[in-house]
Design a protein around this nucleic acid. Structure first.
Lengths: 124, 124, 124, 124
DNA sequence: GTGGTCTAGACCACG
DNA sequence: GTGGTCTAGACCACG
């Protein structure tokens, strides 16, 4: 069976990213209930503790909230969700452009590099 | 004193990237001798074991070579250096575009995002 | 909708405090009848079980009393109400001064801290 | 044996507060190394995982930092430590004054309440 | 049923 | 030796 998780990063962070991504893309809607800790643990084949940690992280990011005795819910504060999405975008762009500049690429080369990459993909 | 290493990544990998970057940008020239393990360990304030690992990694990438009894030297195979540089660039672009698409951004938004980011930086 | 309860503390305790506060401040008068369990449950959007616990707790504190078949009533023993109020005040002061001392603040700093805080609030 | 932890609050939070307090009061100095996870676990009679959680919290607060393979160290950024101390003080004062006002006490009564309390303590 | 906390203990990368 | 992650599984308060 194909391993569902990379070992370059802790499982709990991979799950945070995956769920976070589903939420900011609205694949999971504001107000939706996440499956219970136990169910997610079964679904991903990990220990409930690991899911607990994921939930703590998501709650700290302000994109889910726990309701006592009911479960975890995606925040209905869509403004907050958009802020998170923009933050993630900015982090990716910042890191990417830094990495490219550290390799000695100019701004023009960075942009044309991305453009060529996307164009070539389509061509294939 | 400001910590010189992030704790998001092993120190040895951060050093690999840093030295790799210097070589690829020709800040260190093909044929140049790298400082000794001991000197680098002192310079970066790390354990000599850590530098050993860095050298192993750089040699595996084919951008430095050890000469018995003399030390580590940057390869004079500049074609190889350019290949490495292109590989690193492609890896960065691939990862970046994947991350952005996972957040739900279109190709146009990815490119304009980078352009705006670079433009804003200049403005400031 | 803004969540009406903090998740730092059980809901039933938050309700105890809220109702207790209303009674102690005479917003609800001695002898007044509290709304029925069902009505309170609807009003606060919580489970009737939760209101039951709240009532038990308030009765244990001696500030409400249940009259069989009639409902819960605020005690007419105003002396008892005043005692409760003083108890709560003393508990708050004791905990607060302990916390401040544990941070290393002197008695003078504690008092001036409160004074400055209250003064600044007014200024704004 | 007297239980060392209250059950009103999770053990890990009680430990966070205790260590945090020692640091802001400079009972533990900036730059000091904390005992290892294993040693603290033995010292407090809890599981190493619990200490792990404490360390995560302290690191998130920015008052300790982990150095790979060496352990946890109190930050040398004393400015940050002072900021934390002020934050904690403000939180305590804010909560305290809110609680007192909710009981119906005026600002004068709040201040004189604290003063009388501190004076009486001395008298005893 | 739900999340929250905790223990016991394992394995790993890193330095 | 050090912290970081994870499993297996327990018990609890809360609703």
């Amino acid at each position: 069976m194909a391993e569902q998780f990379s070992n370059a990063q802790p499982i709990y962070l991979q799950l945070v990213q995956r769920i976070c991504r589903q939420i900011v893309r609205r694949e999971v809607q504001p107000g939706d209930k996440l499956p219970s800790v136990r169910d997610l643990a079964v679904q991903f084949g990990v220990n409930p503790n690991t899911i607990q940690r994921v939930n703590m992280e998501l709650e700290r990011m302000g994109i889910v909230e726990s309701r006592r005795g009911q479960g975890m819910f995606v925040t209905e504060d869509t403004k907050q969700l958009n802020i998170i999405r923009d933050q993630l975008r900015d982090e990716h762009i910042t890191r990417f452009t830094n990495e490219m500049r550290e390799l000695g690429y100019t701004e023009e080369e960075i942009i044309s590099g991305v453009q060529n990459f996307l164009r070539n993909e389509k061509g294939q």
